[in-house]
Design a protein around this nucleic acid. Sequence first.
DNA 1: GCCAGTATGTCAGCATTGTTGACTTATTTT
DNA 2: AAAATAAGTCAACAATGCTGACATACTGGC
Lengths: 174, 174
Amino acid sequence: MSAPALQRFDTVRQAFHVEAPYDLIELIFFAYRDFVGEADLVLASYGFGRAHHRVLHFVDRLPGLTIAELLDILRITKQSLNRVLRDLIEGGFIEQRTGVADRRRRLLVTTRSGEALARELARVQSERIASALAEAGEDTRVAVTRFLAGMVGEGDRAHVLELVARGRVNGAHR
Amino acid sequence: MSAPALQRFDTVRQAFHVEAPYDLIELIFFAYRDFVGEADLVLASYGFGRAHHRVLHFVDRLPGLTIAELLDILRITKQSLNRVLRDLIEGGFIEQRTGVADRRRRLLVTTRSGEALARELARVQSERIASALAEAGEDTRVAVTRFLAGMVGEGDRAHVLELVARGRVNGAHR
DNA sequence: GCCAGTATGTCAGCATTGTTGACTTATTTT
DNA sequence: AAAATAAGTCAACAATGCTGACATACTGGC
């Protein structure tokens, strides 16, 4: 919708007292809370937190990821990243390799145990997603995927969709 | 699905190398990041954070909420809640009233400016949801609602759905 | 009316994960 | 050789979780 069109819509919405989708706002909160909460339990037994999960997940999905790319995905500072990355490297879950074309770069890859943990976390979350999709009806998946993509900021959406697709390809090749 | 049925499903899944829904796992991360990120910008101009948003939101939606109920919704400790609640009360966004039936209880309600801020935040988030739904096709809403409800932990789902419904009723009455 | 239980508030300390700012090192590009 | 880039590090701080301990006010049962 264009900007003027949005303004007209807004006027109409106010005139008719269209209610905000409070049910969805709240369900997003509760769904996310439980979605990440279950993984947190697994992580806690390794002494890790959510930040470690995010790093491990994307390194597993995008092997050879550089620090700069990871910072861009997570939108945190390198100081924040370094803390959790150090934990993962010292724990033997992630390894750094020096870039070939550019030796300044650190290419991140999971070790065997890093991959195992990443997959275990993905499995837990997958099961919750699968059961939610099953309850909602299997044709729900396309709708949900499109909805979630639409929730991503417009400026970032193309990039995010490209990353998600890149992850799929890598995943299929391993 | 029953537990033995899930085990059989798992065996089949492994045998056929069924991929986890990595696209959805990642889209949930990116969608949530941007969904709350936009509200964070508004909150920052008031000197508030996400924790304040959650408290303000539920007090606005469920006027007369008690501390105990709020703790149950947010799943945090009373010490954590008290810090942000104090900020909101001192800032004049939330008021406490003594319970009538039970004078130990503190019934929480938003002030005029608290209501205004809560509605402003809800408006920002509503617009993102509305545009995501519009892009995905309007019939998506039912599917997304069911999916999100299915993502909530089973033990909590009935309670969550009741809360969401209660909020709607109150909202219509104001 | 007393007493156990409940609802709330508060102090102190700590962990995780985010931030800014400043600076270093290694490497590539110009 | 100089400038730009990729990454690492130190120090300090903020937001938001946590545990444990204890205080206050009120209710409900006996």
